[in-house]
Design a protein around this nucleic acid. Structure first.
Length: 249
DNA sequence: TAGGCCATCTGGTCCT
DNA sequence: AGGACCAGATGGCCTA
């Protein structure tokens, strides 16, 4: 499972490529059994007799089975495509994460990608707030260049972490922790158990993780992020966090 | 070999 | 009715 398609597992796009003809042939015996089971259940549910003698019924049953099989394959194909699209989006997310990509670096798992993305966004928000604050200081309080900025949060916190992009000219407080600006990022976690890291760097976010100077690892595995600003109320996130609790123990 | 991660199938639910 | 979305089940692959 690498960041590219070099995974040994048959990846989804390949399966998409085969779309229907090959896939029809590739239906496994188990799937056939399930299909037959489903078909027979469907037929019995709809009161269609499979009387051994009646040719009319027999013909009708065959047509129905074929239709059902075709419908099932169609639905499966749609679902497969949907999941492939989701995986493509996940790949796109991985590409913009501060995580090295390459054949020698394992691909982030889905859960790790989502958690890393969340913490990354939080960190960027914090940096943005800090930039606003500094610009406001430079140009004089209320005449900030970002003066229309309404990002909630920590603009008044003097202990903000300075983003490396600001350079040392703006601040020398690189030793301060982002944990002070992101309440959710205070506790440093145990090594990246979620990461499929290279054996050479077991305690890093993969061997190629690009840590920024002065910033702690933004990865979700290093941090325990309670929700500071972002409301996490959906059932999906609830499920996610509950899973994470298990993973992060 | 156990556990993690993933792809796929499947049935249910909701929406258009 | 058909499609999208979701979650559970299942089995395969990989790694420690």
């Amino acid at each position: 499972m690498h960041s590219d398609s070099s995974s040994s597992r048959s990846s989804s796009p390949d399966m998409v490529g085969m779309h229907l003809p090959d896939h029809l042939n590739s239906v496994s015996s188990t799937q056939n059994m399930l299909l037959q089971k489903m078909t027979s259940e469907h037929l019995s549910r709809h009161g269609e007799k499979t009387s051994p003698g009646g040719s009319k019924y027999k013909l009708k049953k065959q047509v129905t089975e074929q239709e059902i099989q075709h419908l099932r394959l169609k639905i499966n194909g749609r679902e497969r495509k949907r999941m492939h699209d989701l995986n493509l989006a996940m790949d796109g997310l991985r590409e913009v994460m501060p995580y090295a990509h390459g054949p020698s670096v394992r691909k982030l798992s889905k859960i790790a990608t989502l958690l890393l993305a969340r913490n990354y966004i939080l960190m960027l928000n914090s940096s943005l707030d800090e930039m606003k604050r500094l610009v406001g200081e430079i140009y004089g309080g209320h005449h900030s260049a970002f003066h229309c900025g309404t990002v909630s949060g920590h603009s008044g916190n003097p202990a903000h972490q300075v983003h490396p992009l600001l350079g040392s000219a703006l601040s020398s407080s690189t030793s301060s922790s982002i944990g002070t600006t992101l309440p959710g990022l205070t506790s440093i976690r145990a090594p990246h158990s979620l990461m499929k890291s290279a054996p050479a760097a077991p305690l890093q976010l993969g061997s190629g993780f690009q840590h920024w100077a002065g910033l702690p690892c933004p990865c979700a595995i290093c941090q325990v992020p309670p929700p500071p600003h972002i409301p996490i109320s959906s059932a999906g996130m609830t499920r996610l966090t509950s899973e994470n609790k298990d993973v992060m123990k």
